[in-house]
Amino acid sequence: MRRRAALIAYVVGALGALAWRAAPGQEGGAPDAAPVREVQDVAPEGLQFIAIDVYVDSGERELGAWQVEVTSDSPEAKLVGVEGGAHAAYAEPPYYDPAALHESDAFDRVVIAALSTADELPTGRTRVARLHFMVEGEPGFRVKLMAAGARDATPIGAGVFFEQTTTGTVEGGA
């Protein structure tokens, strides 16, 4: 019950955050330029909401497609949301297996991927997705690049990074 209430509170909060980000002038280029780091220290106890921003760096090449695996060491982590990235070409949520969202009590991994045939494709480091997790205890995530391709689908060497942010906490846990 407490977990459900926390989830509802999170959804309301997330909607508010989205509305704020959608306001004119709020979406700049800052996320892509931000260093990869933990933005906020988290308390190991209690229920936390964690946002994982996934970045792909394709260097000078245009990013036509990417595929990333996100894994978690946390025994009590649950994927609760998947959002798109910062660039228009990847603004839609990426492909992912809904089983990771709906059928998994204990999240261990998800594969996310997206492609774009848009005229404008990002280069350099760009945020391609944001994942939202509900975590009890110490969060621990890893990301691994499975594939990245240029506009013409030829493979390219790219880097993958993530930035972890605590977006909310519930004292005492579930």
Binding site: G64, A65, W66, Q67, Y95, A113, A114, L115, T117, M146, A147, G149, D152, A153, T154, P155
Partner: peptide
């Protein structure tokens, strides 16, 4: 589709481009 021995998002991009 690119015959590299694995099926990944690059194959989906090849397909998407061809369909488009």
């Amino acid at each position: 589709l690119n015959g590299d021995g694995r099926t990944d998002i690059l194959d989906a991009l090849i397909l998407a481009r061809a369909v488009e």
